[in-house]
């Protein structure tokens, strides 16, 4: 099944959060991989968005937009690091 990058989450998330979800680092609750959500693998638009971990394929978050409201499920995250926006400010491209 084709998938997209986490970048595509930005629109739906912009209705929910004041920060940019795609540059926000988060940790996978299954394999503890840490990455910006823009690097996750996203399945399912236009029905909704299921973002999976790039390392272990576990579901990180689910976002569904409906006329009567939005659903946001973050079942697969241990945490998000909000506001440091390392990637927006200029990601160090070498580890």
């Amino acid at each position: 099944m084709p998938y997209l990058d986490g970048n595509v989450l930005a629109g739906a998330a912009s209705d929910l959060f004041a920060f940019d979800l795609t540059t926000t680092e988060a940790q996978c609750a299954s394999c503890y991989d840490i990455a910006p959500l823009g690097r996750s693998l996203v399945f399912g638009p236009p029905m909704g968005f299921v973002a999976r971990c790039r390392s272990c394929d576990s579901v990180l978050i689910v976002v569904v937009e409906r006329p009567e409201g939005h659903a946001f499920d973050a079942r697969g995250l241990r945490w998000m690091r909000i506001g440091n926006d390392a990637h927006a400010a200029g990601e160090k491209i070498r580890p």
Partner: peptide
């Protein structure tokens, strides 16, 4: 709706 996404972005410098 936008502009959206800060990850796939190029910035001078």
């Amino acid at each position: 709706r936008g502009p959206l996404g800060g990850f796939f972005v190029w910035r001078s410098g």
